[in-house]
Design a protein around this nucleic acid. Structure first.
Lengths: 145, 145
DNA sequence: CGTAATCAGGACCTAAACCGTCCTGTTAAC
DNA sequence: GTTAACAGGACGGTTTAGGTCCTGATTACG
């Protein structure tokens, strides 16, 4: 259904929350703030830390801190951090031998332009755009398209 | 993983095939042409027919015919026909009572601009664009973005 | 008029992916 | 030394999509 994973949703919530906190916040603290079970939030934060979107401090009184300002984080980065590279995974996945009927299949690498288009669209939306709940939809669209 | 369903892939293959056939072609015929099991192809074609992307003729010597030229069919239409409306289905799905912590959850309708951006990106790619296997990638991208 | 071919529409089952949890190890403050 | 927190991986339950099949309706052809 072209859906993104729920974890990505949590990631956005966590990042926005971290931005509001303006400092170090622990995983349990964030979990309580956004209303999501702690282990799940921890998992998301680990993934985000792996991509440098948040920086972590270990030990007591440690926690997570926003790696960059919201305006410089785009949606594509978050999705990539959580779900892996953005690709519509039809035949393109490098599945060896999966498509032995390549002579028949006329859809060889044809989704590539679609993938690219989606990627650029997502790269042009920053977390700062999503953070404003007022959401001036029509206006923002023209920036993207 | 932001992936689209495999059925959508089949749909594109079937439509391109129908365009090449330039006339009526049966469901088994298309299945053989694109190398996909017949029942699955039949399912896809029914979905496409429901949205008017292909027109069907029943009875013996019947079959499917392309509803419109490839250039006037965009990717968003196909995805919508197969997978339903394009929406990243986080909280937005109208799930009543699913998000009882709305006061906490700061991700209310925030994915809407993202959905819209993806939708417009997909609407700007036609099947004719996908049909050319040469795929001048960088050029086409600028048309979209 | 009957038979065969084809689409229409739904029900069903299997399989895979995701979500969420837990466990163990490492680091740093008190 | 103890406690609080992140790091990283492994595991099971649930959901969703993919694929198949069956029955009915429609039309060409003999």
């Amino acid at each position: 259904m072209l859906k993104l994973s729920r974890l990505t949703d949590y990631a956005v919530a966590a990042l926005v929350r971290l931005s509001a906190a303006e400092g170090v916040e622990t995983s349990p603290g964030i979990a309580a703030a956004i209303g999501v079970p702690e282990p799940t939030v921890a998992k998301v934060l680990k993934l985000l830390a792996g991509q440098g979107l948040v920086s972590s401090t270990r030990g007591a009184r440690g926690g997570y801190r926003l790696g960059r300002p919201l305006a410089s984080i785009n949606v594509a980065e978050i999705i990539t951090a959580i779900d892996g590279p953005i690709a519509l995974t039809s035949c393109v996945e490098g599945a060896t031998g999966m498509c032995e009927s390549q002579t028949l299949c006329p859809v060889a690498g044809r989704w590539d332009p679609v993938n690219a288009a989606i990627r650029t669209a997502l790269e042009n939306i920053t977390l700062a755009d999503m953070a404003q709940s007022s959401m001036p939809r029509g206006l923002r669209l023209n920036e993207v398209a």
